[in-house]
Structure formats: structure tokens, C-alpha cells
Design a binder for these strands. Structure first.
Lengths: 192, 192
DNA sequence: TTAGTTAACACCTATGTGAAAATC
DNA sequence: TCGATTTTCACATAGGTGTTAACT
């Protein structure tokens, strides 16, 4: 996992990720360094997002608290195939593998665009996971993830609660401080 | 070939395409409708650019004239693999196949970024070509284009002379009139 | 009312244009 | 001097931010 210090800062305050109908990028975004692959073998790399628990969460009195049962796993795509897939082990190990364009949405109708957006439920806690699958040449479609020959990685620091508006002001400030696209909201007293 | 009327307008005045060190997009850009493919077979789609003749060209007295021999074929990548490659016949036929992000350059050092930019010589006349190659599962690398099972298409209307600055003012005006990124140079007398 | 969601907005990053000046 | 190339620039497109107000 790359950019661990930043993820840790967010995690300490309980990371929140905005979800919108049209889809919102994650910040921080997932990025990994892979090693130990066969340079000439072919792999597909993808990310999925799974529920951490079966509860609604509510932000009350400055804290996140559990609140009743969730309505089970809702339908909707939770798998995002890395755009470079499939590719050689050498390709994946040459440089960091980033998911900067992965988008989160609450629009169940967007499930049609499989692989474009990950559909989540607001106010639920999620864990992103990385899957590295060896692709057997001559095999059928790529729609069988995760397959038997998959390595899966999950980093607790990347857990987050999906929201439609930020609840914790500390999280908002961290986003403003570190996301370049939010520079317009920084207190500018010429930090040069 | 899509957008044929626009290509024809440029072709009538002898199309010019700017080349720069960092790479410049084509305008108009190449876009095709494919048909007749096997929906479940896999194909790679790419474009290359070849010399039309072995001469330098010079713009003199408002006309393009040949001028001495070219120094043969220079090294440099002239092949651009469509980013969706490889993919199924159904995918390629579902909608137009566009090369809007293909970039032309005169930077021979950019040959390293194979597949990113097409390296050309200024003041030479070129013909873009479309290649559709069936990918055999289990075959080795994709670096054997064009392979024996390739269909190649070339449209004379897409021929152009590579330049580092526009020579014909008619071409400049056509670019300004039709390329959205050049809207800032249009004579704005509120065409609404 | 309350809590969650949505849409419009100003502000930003990132990048594609030809013009014009500078350079080779 | 001359022609070709490169650099810088104002002005576009395209789209990612949190804020705010409206909506449900």
C-alpha cells in the first residue's frame, strides 16, 4: 500500500468517502507496489469493496456509532478492474499500480456500467481489497473474479464509511489540506 | 471512416498536421465504424502512418511543391495501438473506434514510449492506415503487427503533411472553425 | 422538525489550441 | 537573411473539489 502515512492520518479520524450519483473518486486513492509475480505470466488486477459489518452507522455527538442492522448485501457492482488489465507481471511490478480513477456511487442503476463504478450504500462501513489474478491463456471470459488463482490483500487503514456529505470536520479538513482539487478551500496565507 | 465531410474539407486544401516534441493530437482525428467481425473473437486495432512519397515538400507561392529526395525511412515508432486492445469483435463493432488521443511528434527520443506517440518527419506527406488483427489466444506477444491475419484500410482523405507551423492559412482557419480547443481564435460575432 | 440526499456554484487541476516571439 | 523549430502565452475544453441551499 502506497502513501501509508496519509491513509493513517485519515484512518485515525475514521475515513469518510463521498458517494454521488455520477460517481466520486476516492481520496486518498488506492495505490500498491506489487512484487513476487512471474514477469512473463499474465495477470489481471482489480479492487473490490466489501462491508466491514452489518450495521448502519450514524455520526452523533462527534462520534460514529452503530445503529440498527443493515439490510443485507444490496445488489450492485463492487468490482473495479484496473484499466491496464490484463497485463504481464513485469508490467505490474515496473511501477506502482494506482486506482486514482476508481469512482464510488450510490446509483444502483449505474451497475450496468460494470467495471466503471463501485456501488455502495451510504452510512455503511467498507473495506477495499486488492485482487491479483493470474490469467490462463485460452481461458474463457474475465468475469470469474475472484478465481481460484487469486491473491487477495486488504489493508485496514483503507477502511471507510460511505457518506453523501462529510460528517466529521477533521476529515473535511484533511481532504482540503491534501487533495489538490480542493486547494480552493485552503486558508491561503502564502505557505511559500 | 467517420466524419468524412470534415476530412474532405481539409483534404481539398491539403491537410496539415502539427508535430511537436511533446506530441500533438490530430485534428480531425481518426474514427472508424467496424463491421463484419466475429463478435466472440478477439482483435487488436491499431493505426500506423506511412510515407506517401519519398520527397520533401515545401509551401511556396501558396502551393505545396515537391523538393528533393527524402532521406529514406527514419527510425521511430509509427504504430499506435488502440487503448481498448485487445478486445472482442462485439466491443469494436458496438460503437465507433476513435483515435482522439493519438499524438504526433518529431521527437525521435520519444520512440521509447512505444505506442504512445507516432514519430514523423516534418514536411513529409503521410497516409494513416487502420489495422484490425485477430488475436489468437495462447499466442505470444502483441508486438508482431501487422501479422498475417490483419485487415488493413487506408483512406486517401486522411493524408496529411506533417509541419511544425501551419503553412496554408485556409488550413489554419478550418482548424479554428472546427476544433473546440481553438474556439478562442474564432471571430465571435455571436453566432447564436 | 430532523436527517439524509441532491443540484448549482465558485474555484481549482490538467491539458489542448493557434498566435507570436524567440531560437536554431 | 531566411526558413524551420521551439517556447511562451492567452484562451479554450474537460472535469475534480467542498460549500451552500434546496429538496425529500
Amino acid at each position: 500500500l502506497n502513501n501509508y502515512p496519509l491513509w493513517a492520518k485519515f484512518h485515525k479520524h475514521q475515513t469518510e468517502m463521498i458517494i454521488t450519483k455520477q460517481g466520486r473518486r476516492m481520496f486518498p486513492f488506492l495505490s500498491f507496489n506489487l512484487s513476487g509475480l512471474n514477469p512473463v505470466a499474465h495477470y489481471s488486477v482489480c479492487v473490490d469493496v466489501v462491508l466491514v459489518d452489518q450495521h448502519h452507522w450514524r455520526y452523533q455527538g462527534g462520534k460514529w456509532v452503530q445503529c440498527g442492522k443493515a439490510e443485507g448485501n444490496m445488489p450492485g457492482n463492487r468490482l473495479y478492474l484496473h484499466p491496464d488489465s490484463p497485463n504481464t507481471g513485469a508490467h505490474w511490478m515496473r511501477q506502482e499500480v494506482s486506482f486514482g480513477k476508481l469512482k464510488l456511487t450510490n446509483n444502483k442503476g449505474a451497475s450496468n456500467n460494470v467495471g466503471q463504478m463501485i456501488v455502495l450504500q451510504s452510512l455503511h462501513k467498507y473495506q477495499p481489497r486488492l485482487h491479483v489474478t493470474e490469467v490462463k491463456e485460452g481461458a474463457e471470459s474475465e468475469e470469474t473474479y475472484p478465481s481460484p488463482h487469486t491473491h487477495t490483500f486488504a489493508f485496514p487503514e483503507t477502511q471507510f464509511i460511505a457518506v453523501t456529505a462529510y460528517q466529521n470536520a477533521d476529515i473535511t479538513q484533511l481532504k482540503i489540506d491534501h487533495n489538490p482539487f480542493a486547494k480552493g478551500f485552503r486558508d491561503n496565507f502564502d505557505s511559500m
